[in-house]
Design a protein around this nucleic acid. Sequence first.
DNA 1: TGCATTCTGTAACGAGCAGCACAAATATGG
DNA 2: CCATATTTGTGCTGCTCGTTACAGAATGCA
Lengths: 200, 200
Amino acid sequence: MVAGRPRAFCTDKALDSAMQVFWRKGYEGASMVDLTTAIGINSPSLYAAFGNKENLFKAVLERYDARRKSFMESVLAAPTALDVARTFLHGIVDLAADTGGKTPPGCLYMQSGQSCSDAHISDEVNKHRAEKEAMLCERFEQARRAGDLPAATDPATLARYLTAMGNGMAVQASCGASAPELRAVADIALASFSAFINPA
Amino acid sequence: MVAGRPRAFCTDKALDSAMQVFWRKGYEGASMVDLTTAIGINSPSLYAAFGNKENLFKAVLERYDARRKSFMESVLAAPTALDVARTFLHGIVDLAADTGGKTPPGCLYMQSGQSCSDAHISDEVNKHRAEKEAMLCERFEQARRAGDLPAATDPATLARYLTAMGNGMAVQASCGASAPELRAVADIALASFSAFINPA
DNA sequence: TGCATTCTGTAACGAGCAGCACAAATATGG
DNA sequence: CCATATTTGTGCTGCTCGTTACAGAATGCA
């Protein structure tokens, strides 16, 4: 292993600090000064490690995405379509509200990509969001094939419904809604989900 | 009326142009150059008319809010709680998706206030959003008093549910979801809503 | 016609932005 | 202990941002 002066900071910890900043201020609202002071390094170190602001954000997004993807995998492992919906929505509540300062409230996708003038960034964020919706859709297609869902239901619509609900709940969390409040909201969503897939 | 040189642009049309820019790029993403070129005036004219960027945005927000409020009033006029919910969600679809270029897809609240590092701005946006939720809540309280809703239901939770749903659908519209797709989502939301307020 | 008033266009201001050049510092391999 | 490689801190760059000073143009009023 060839080596020079060792890096004085942990790349992963730096990404976590940067994530907090992007989460709270958005992509454009987060300045390089905000990022370097949050990480505790000088800008040349940051540029040497990540290239530029866009690449840094993409690395942060990738890190966030890995966690969301593993969350989604635990969701998709639920036995029935209704269990999938319940695990998903209740999980979103835990991720988005009352996190005890570990992460900002809400969801990085909503807070960083929603109002961004740079199309590269918002496209990238939306790509990741769409991926999660596709995972739900695929799971519901499988459920329909397995007879767990009526043949008449459209998996894509179900996935879109849950995604919209999750995003809306994340937005409310970022505006101060508490976990119990959002859990009550999730329960309405689940009641209607259940009513929809089990027509009387 | 004392007057000097007459203003060469219409204030309301200017606000509409500015609204489009804020809607597409967010508050921080919209530069004064973006705004002045979209309006077709020079910056001193804009500053003379509106003060500064923050005040311009607040004027835009007020204008948007007036339309949303009149939309809400037509929603609240629906005869039953379920009709209110249906009118609300279907109306959101019409406002947010396939607008034919008249407005950008989605909703100004989501696109401009969600990822903004300036707390003054996001607070202002959230204040307006919360106002609409409160209107729904009040309407549902009235519906419960009238016996249109079961006494066990919590009007605030219902309002929160519909608001989350509306916001989530607006986000999906901004990502390219079509009106028919969103209408199908709204119908799921209503199915559950109907099941919730009329427990079998 | 002259004066007061208001708007318009040109051109600039300081501040803050993303990004980088460079030399000192700290590691490894011979 | 020297050569090489990599990171660190200082300080800067060019650019874009929001905002404004100022002079000229267009109105109403006397």
